[in-house]
């Protein structure tokens, strides 16, 4: 039920994002979702791609610091209140969200929200129990 995400350390200097995207593009790797957390000095680029291992290897060869993180993807109906229901459920179980980001599926029916929790297993258990649609990694990579 977990999804593999790669995180890349990026200094705040021009051209670095383009280099990541370029390297992945050349290797035929497709980016499914991304988010960028930034501070005044550096940023962390988080990506979900169709081939996590290969992407990691290519970026490491290019000299980037890369790590793999497990996140959880949840499908939410693309309507007002969709996100709120999930967050309330998580809150009631006392689960902390480290960070999250969202994207809308290509067909436009649903949104997918990527969560990073401090307790991944417990979060999945609670979300499944509450009837949310937790996506398999495979589905997301091929989406």
């Amino acid at each position: 039920m977990k999804v593999e995400q790669i995180s890349i350390f990026i200094e705040n200097k021009s051209g670095r994002l383009a280099e990541v995207a370029g390297a992945l593009g050349q290797a035929g790797i497709n980016i499914r979702a991304l988010s960028l957390a930034d501070t005044s000095d550096f940023g962390i680029l988080r990506l979900i791609v169709n081939d996590c291992e290969k992407a990691k290897q290519i970026l490491k060869e290019k000299g980037f610091t890369v790590s793999k993180t497990e996140v959880v993807a949840i499908e939410v109906p693309d309507r007002p209140g969709g996100l709120s229901e999930i967050l309330q459920a998580l809150d009631s179980f006392g689960i902390n969200v480290e960070y999250m980001y969202a994207f809308v599926e290509r067909c436009g029916q649903n949104a997918v929200i990527i969560f990073r929790f401090d307790e991944t297993e417990k979060a999945i258990e609670c979300l499944v129990q509450e009837g949310f649609n937790v996506l398999q990694g495979e589905r997301l990579y091929q989406m």
């Binding site: 995400q5 995180s7 350390f9 957390a37 501070t39 000095d41 550096f42 962390i44 988080r46 610091t65 890369v66 790590s67 993180t69 480290e98 960070y99 990073r116």
Partner: peptide
């Protein structure tokens, strides 16, 4: 330099190291 041993996926961890 941030190598893999130092790197964390979370901004707050990196900031607290600094």
């Amino acid at each position: 330099e941030v190598d893999e041993l130092l790197f964390s996926d979370e901004v707050k961890h990196l900031q607290s190291i600094a």
